[in-house]
């Protein structure tokens, strides 16, 4: 295992099977010189960032530093914003997902997303999960769909709480449950990558702890990128951390390293609370 090249090292793999590790040394998503412009105004500057499979990458930084904007490049959600323009290359399995030939709809079925505020559809819990598999034609019959719904809810750690009331509206759940429902909804379409945009910022500490546990659990199967305001959260859930400031990627590395011995002065100032 090549441990000298910082960017090619995946800490999540230590102790795992060597063959698997070998396959996952290369980044799942590799961003090269990504810049984002909103109506001509540049918000993200030439960010190059590898994201590894079966691990959590945290994006931290003060408000307005472009970390959410960058996150939204990874599933082309910026396409839906008028006047937004993304340049640079984002490789996923060797394909540039930022190229105009790539269908963002197809991409989004492989790159799921969970938002800052829980946004379940105002439909039943069941339909919330079943919607994605239905529109992508992932299921043949009702039984398969039932199975997907159950599996997704189980993975999101929500099954025990809602199994008896799947017909109730998703909006009737508590905030934390709603957020887990949204995670289940994202899982249901069998994505490879899950993007989380401050998934705990509207939740109380107990619900946050549950989500964090869940993220840790999901890490075993998915590639997760999480934007967070809380440095403790980044330290708790992520294996790698990238620090953004004013649209620039200042520093990235193993989470331990970023929080214990940051190389950049700005990183140190931020994580010690001197600004931000």
């Amino acid at each position: 295992m090549d441990t000298t090249a910082q960017t090619d090292y995946n800490p999540a793999l230590t102790g795992d099977g060597a063959d698997k590790a070998q396959a996952l040394v290369y980044p799942r998503i590799d961003c090269k010189d990504v810049s984002v412009f909103y109506s001509g105004k540049q918000a993200v500057f030439d960010v190059s960032l590898p994201v590894y499979d079966r691990s959590v990458t945290a994006l931290i930084g003060p408000s307005g530093c472009g970390k959410s904007t960058f996150l939204r490049c990874l599933n082309r959600m910026n396409d839906t914003i008028d006047g937004a323009k993304v340049t640079g290359e984002i490789f996923m399995d060797g394909e540039n997902i930022n190229s105009p030939e790539v269908d963002p709809v197809l991409l989004r079925s492989r790159v799921g997303m969970v938002f800052q505020k829980p946004n379940p559809f105002p439909k039943s819990i069941y339909d919330n999960i079943a919607y994605g598999p239905r529109i992508h034609g992932l299921v043949e019959d009702r039984q398969e769909l039932d199975a997907i719904v159950e599996k997704s809810l189980r993975r999101a750690g929500l099954w025990q709480e809602v199994k008896d009331r799947l017909a109730q509206p998703g909006t009737s759940l508590s905030g934390g449950q709603q957020q887990r429902l949204c995670i289940a909804r994202a899982i249901a379409v069998r994505p490879e990558v899950i993007l989380m945009d401050e998934p705990c910022s509207s939740l109380d500490p107990i619900a946050t702890a549950r989500i964090e546990e869940l993220i840790d659990e999901l890490r075993k199967r998915y590639c997760i990128v999480i934007v967070t305001h809380s440095m403790q959260q980044a330290a708790r859930v992520s294996q790698r951390t990238a620090f953004f400031h004013l649209g620039h990627l200042v520093e990235m590395g193993d989470t331990d390293q970023i929080f214990t011995s940051p190389r950049e002065r700005r990183t140190e100032d931020y994580i010690t609370g001197r600004f931000g």
Binding site: T80, V105, Y131, G132
Partner: peptide
């Protein structure tokens, strides 16, 4: 209709048309 509903639909891989006709329009 809150934009979060649209984003939610788009994020699970619905096309713009599907997001509008499945989620926004009923609301």
């Amino acid at each position: 209709v809150p934009p979060s509903i649209r984003s939610g639909a788009l994020a699970v891989g619905a096309s713009r048309m599907q997001a509008v006709f499945h989620h926004v329009l009923p609301l």
